[in-house]
Amino acid sequence: MSFFRVTLHRSAIGLPERTRGVLAALGLRKRTQTVFHPVSPQFAGMIMKVKELVRVEEVDRALSPAEMRDERRPERGFWLEKPAHRA
């Protein structure tokens, strides 16, 4: 089962209540927020209504918030080769 990865890219300030309602139905509250929804005609239609505001990718599975945080985290860049003696 594949998912839409929807990120709100443009704010909905000043847009009609109808458009804001679509974003609320998608679960998008603020810019750069990302939600996952299963690929289905309902969600495709909702994304179509706000296509100017969001960026959409199709992914294989929905990521948890922890996984999305790991995605953004830079590489550590070191590893502990030889620990000192600890008391």
């Binding site: 070191f78 502990l80 080769e81 030889k82 620990p83 000192a84 003696h85």
Partner: peptide
């Protein structure tokens, strides 16, 4: 978790 004397290997 790092204490003085730990040897770190920088790999990036």
């Amino acid at each position: 978790g790092a204490v003085p004397g730990d040897v770190l290997r920088l790999d990036r």
